[in-house]
């Protein structure tokens, strides 16, 4: 791997998400290229925290906190009629589609479809 290829995968390398073979290639390059090593060290300010571990009771504390928050929340009001943000773009697209379809149907190039013409139907009979 050359310097550019290594820099193109630097975020995956620092997040330790490369496959072992690819990681070995990057490591090999970093050993021989101090420039890239320096750039990678700068690009990963959190790399020093790799060995830090979460407190053991973190999960329990989070659960308790969530339960507390949930109990403090007021009962949800009955849902009002609110279309989600996808609704109106869909309606607008439908309107545009219908307009285009009708314009094409009446003024498009070529002859009327022969599959459906009376002459073809007669010929097929």
């Amino acid at each position: 791997m050359n310097c550019e290829a290594v820099l193109n995968v630097e975020d995956l390398y620092t997040e330790d998400r490369l496959t072992p073979s690819r990681k070995a290639q990057v490591d090999a390059h970093l050993k021989s290229c101090p420039l890239c090593g320096g750039k990678l060290a700068k690009a990963s300010p959190l790399s020093g925290l790799k060995s830090a571990s979460a407190p053991k009771d973190l999960k329990e504390r989070m659960k308790k906190l969530l339960a507390k928050l949930e109990s403090a929340e007021p009962a949800p009001a009955p849902e009002a009629l609110s279309m989600d943000s996808e609704f109106w773009p869909v309606v607008a697209s439908i309107a545009i589609y219908l307009g285009l379809a009708l314009a094409l149907a009446w003024a498009g190039p070529g002859a009327p479809s022969q599959k459906y013409s009376p002459a073809t139907a007669e010929a097929l009979r």
């Binding site: 791997m1 050359n2 550019e4 290829a5 290594v6 193109n8 995956l12 490369l18 496959t19 072992p20």
Partner: peptide, 16 residues
């Protein structure tokens, strides 16, 4: 999510 990623890097910088 969060697993390893098979990657094909391009051996060229942004300008190239």
């Amino acid at each position: 999510r969060g697993g390893a990623v098979i990657v094909i890097p391009l051996p060229m910088g942004e300008t190239a």
